[in-house]
Design a protein around this nucleic acid. Sequence first.
DNA 1: TCCTACAATGGACATAGTCCAAGTCAAGTG
DNA 2: CACTTGACTTGGACTATGTCCATTGTAGGA
Lengths: 139, 139
Amino acid sequence: MSDLLERLRGRGWRMTAQRRVVAEVLDGDHVHLTADEVHARAVAKLPEISRATVYNTLGEMVTLGEVIEVSTDRRAKRYDPNAHRPHHHLVCASCGTIRDVHPAGDPLADLPSDERFGFTVSNVEVTYRGICPNCAATT
Amino acid sequence: MSDLLERLRGRGWRMTAQRRVVAEVLDGDHVHLTADEVHARAVAKLPEISRATVYNTLGEMVTLGEVIEVSTDRRAKRYDPNAHRPHHHLVCASCGTIRDVHPAGDPLADLPSDERFGFTVSNVEVTYRGICPNCAATT
DNA sequence: TCCTACAATGGACATAGTCCAAGTCAAGTG
DNA sequence: CACTTGACTTGGACTATGTCCATTGTAGGA
């Protein structure tokens, strides 16, 4: 069973069939589904679940900090359940495959204060782009 | 006059009033307009320019590597003409203001080869998020 | 078991972006 | 300078993604 589900329950989330299904769909490493993909998989388990509910639930999970929104491509936002292990993303420019990666170093520390324009900087997102072995082989 | 325009002309681009206007709109530092904003400003200079042309032109500039697409928020893509000076972005989580920043260090070098999953990594995008002084003051 | 506040529904609406067939025009040629 | 041609522009329809809201349903406490 999903750690995610346990954590959500622990926060006093009202547990419904719909939320359970969404949480189950979003489980594992290297998981980066779009809202529509989440909806499609949720429908497979609970046919009457609506798109709006999936959007609402994903949004709530993001607000609670249990899921991260990633927009690696120009298309839909993707949802990454691996919120509790800081990581960044490596995206194939050709097929769109996404992998979680853990670079050395701390990019936050690399931003000198005279480059902060007075901002209070709290967060950094890094997206590496390249070609995956699969796509490199087939071209 | 815009360097951007000169470079485009040098690449054998057919110069039209529409393209000139789009290139003029996209000039300067810390410029990060959405396609619609570009269109709005272009219309001010050339009332009959169409949305499709703005999208086409922006897309071509991106393909030529003269302009960078940035998707810092969940909403529209933004276009950054500063493609020839490598830089990253600092975004205010509250008002959406974007600044160009130049961190120390090279994030590309920070990705160990055993974290590359066989990808040929060519590019990295870094987005810092925080609160700008303006928003910090008014809350 | 009953109540009630919170959640789900689904359909209309909003926003961003793409596509296409037809018309227009930049720029090379003679 | 006029001609020609293929690249460029147009505008409107279309697609994709996401949001809103009034109504209906239900989890979980009393």
